[in-house]
Write a protein that binds this DNA or RNA. Structure first.
Lengths: 212, 212
DNA sequence: TAGATTGTTAATCGATTAACAATC
DNA sequence: TAGATTGTTAATCGATTAACAATC
């Protein structure tokens, strides 16, 4: 499927395209040109066409792009044309908030189980999920089809959990403020909130607008 | 103070340098060369030296960098050599989690007030903060020195709040999954969790390792 | 058909890497 | 002094922008 090597910069922009196209679709917009989209998103039309053509020829000369079709193609490219099964580990404040947020399910990202090591939490329910003992994580992964493990544990615990995951192919959505040591089969995406806040602080101090 | 134009790529890396240097400092490491740091962080030594020299000459030939000194300089560059006063708007799951997280205060980012529009929340306490009515936000900003407004409201409400902030100079840490329309004086940093999750999905599907 | 807009090649710009003189 | 490692210039690489033929 892959032909060219897709750059990190393009991958970073893809979900944003998806969001804009979803919004347009919701507003019943049927077609859009790269020019129009570029003005909406603050990019150049050239860049949009280059980006999209990494993945196929989605447009029509003289017409532009069909919003719904393009959205659907990007959806596929992003691997969102299927259910992504997730489990969450670590039910502190952030873990609970992520688990309770209902914006992911609509995009096909569904929480199937939640784990913690704190005995006072185990057995309690959040939403419709009963909190399980972290010890049961591997057993659960053996018997269920899990795509993504969400790590909302303290940074001291994160690497141990990753190391305990065996040889499985998994995505790790890491909220611990550290860089995990991975291995083949693991795909790690970091959400480093503190670093985002520091960038804001930098931009504030230096009056620097950050281009998306 | 600014001489060269600092690129977005450099700014994105700065907080990560700060994190690694903080970790090294905690481990009592006194000095480090760009070579050593590059191996630790998965960058090239060249890039590290280039990055740092945007802000000054922090090293010593034949020696490398003093960890504590370099950390402190980057801290200043990031605008973290002072207290950053924050208020939070929107006490849903995520807002409460962010407010309760105690990792920001240690870096000088301190929550001074929290606002919501839901009458059942107003007046209750989270941590040591009493939730205030969102109507009082402007009054509060008039009488207090606030640097950063954290927006953890639904996307339908986010732009209205931004528009209501008047002419003030503020940083906006935006968790709503939309791009805010800013104005001079506002510095916006977005945390788009859904987009991060989609990137993970993409990388999973395409077996793509994302270089930090 | 004429006008619009794509897909794509070529040109430009900027970021990363390599190399090395300066110097601790 | 000899060895190490910086700061910085030059070379390379890659990403963005511009241009335009193809074509709806």
């Amino acid at each position: 499927m892959e032909e060219r090597k897709i750059s990190a910069a393009v991958i970073r922009r893809l979900p944003r395209y998806f969001r804009y196209l979803s919004d347009l679709h919701e507003q019943q917009v049927e077609r859009i040109s790269s020019k129009q989209l570029s003005e909406l998103m603050g990019l150049t039309a050239s860049q949009i066409r280059q980006d999209l053509n990494n993945f196929g020829e989605f447009g029509l000369q003289g017409y532009g792009y069909n919003v719904n079709y393009l959205r659907d193609e990007i959806r596929k490219v992003l691997g969102m044309d299927k259910i992504n099964n997730m489990v969450l580990v670590g039910l502190g404040n952030l873990g609970q908030a992520i688990l309770r947020y209902n914006g992911f399910a609509g995009k096909g990202f569904i929480f199937r189980a939640a784990f913690d090591r704190n005995p006072t939490r185990i057995g309690t329910e959040i939403g419709d999920l009963r909190i399980r003992n972290i010890n049961e994580l591997n057993e659960y992964l053996d018997s269920h089809d899990v795509d993504i493990v969400v790590l909302t544990v303290p940074k001291g615990a994160a690497q141990d959990i990753v190391d305990s995951l065996g040889e499985r192919n998994l995505g790790i959505w890491n909220f611990a403020s550290m860089d995990l040591v991975g291995r083949p089969g693991l795909t790690i995406e970091n959400v480093h909130l503190s670093e985002s806040l520091m960038r804001l602080s930098y931009c504030l101090k230096h009056e620097r607008k950050m281009d998306e």
